[in-house]
Computed example of a mutant assay.
Amino acid sequence: MARYGAKKLYLDLKDDFKKNDIKMGRDRFIHFLRYHNLLIRKTKLYHITTDSKHGFYKSKDLLADLEIKHAEQVFVSDITYIKLASQHAYLALVTDVYSKKIMGYKIDTNMRVKLVKEALEMAVKNRRYKNENLIHHSDRGIQYCCPDFAEFAKSKNIILSTTQNSSPYENAVAERINGILKQEFGLNKTIPNLKTSQKMVKQAIEIYNNQRRHCSLGMKTPEFAHVNQIHKYKSYKKNKIPILVA
């Protein structure tokens, strides 16, 4: 995790500091990294993956006033662009809002509805609490609003919700996870081919879910948060936290 973040890195190294009698607090550690030019600046890359100019039904935004209390209450989905050497690829992600755990994904060289259906299919199979009602929230892209996807979600007893405007804060968790995978795991680089990108995405998601600490999870991992459910949910939208910072 080459772009892991200084605060999370300090927590992972703190015990080693003690064992080796290194007296260094978090702030001093960050100053140390800054002094040696080891802090990494975030970059922003944009590629349009949402086509909301269509005639299909757009669901209401069910998250606007919803209190997030537990895992598998809400899944959020989005598609992000992956650059390959000779073509384009697209990564569809399904993330649990409460735990920030990536529940399902699919990467391919198209943005057809099959891409998002297969990502959601994986997410449904990976559910731990199958007795809970589930909301699926996404942008107003044609893949998420077309009858094919709506019927598929209904067959899984999933309630659809969509953003009402173009603000990234209406789907902040999904946008943030996109940024983490691309900025911290190298998915913003040009990848040789689809097969390599599939391997990279699988590895990145496994590390992200099981090893990467989250500030919003009390510095726990998404897997820990999903299983234990002891933290209080923090809304990115309410606190206006920059999308790519985690």
Rank of each mutant, 00 (worst) to 15 (best):
E223A: 15
K101N: 04
Y81C: 00
R128I: 01
N193F: 01
D21A: 15
F149S: 08
Y81A: 01
L181V: 09
D108N: 00
A71G: 11
F149W: 14
T50S: 06
Y144H: 01
L63I: 04
E118L: 02
K69Y: 09
F56L: 06
K117S: 14
R112A: 11
Y129I: 09
F29I: 05
H47P: 02
L84P: 02
H136Q: 13
D16G: 03
I142S: 02
T163A: 12
K125F: 08
R112D: 14
Q143D: 00
T43P: 03
T80K: 02
S167F: 10
D139S: 14
K125L: 14
K7N: 06
F149A: 00
K156Q: 14
Q229Y: 11
F152Q: 09
L62C: 11
V76S: 14
Y46D: 06
K156G: 11
V227E: 03
V74S: 11
L9V: 11
T190V: 05
K101H: 13
Q203S: 10
E151C: 05
F185E: 00
R176C: 10
Y236P: 05
S235V: 02
I102F: 07
P222C: 04
I207F: 11
L11E: 03
H88Y: 03
Y208Q: 06
P168N: 03
I107V: 02
H54K: 03
K202A: 15
L244S: 13
K8H: 04
V245G: 01
K53F: 03
E206Q: 00
G5L: 08
V173P: 05
D96M: 11
V74E: 11
H231S: 00
G5C: 05
L45H: 07
N131E: 12
D21E: 14
I205W: 01
G5M: 04
R213L: 15
I68C: 10
P147E: 07
L66Q: 12
N37K: 15
K156E: 12
K220A: 09
I107R: 02
D61Y: 08
L217K: 12
Y105V: 12
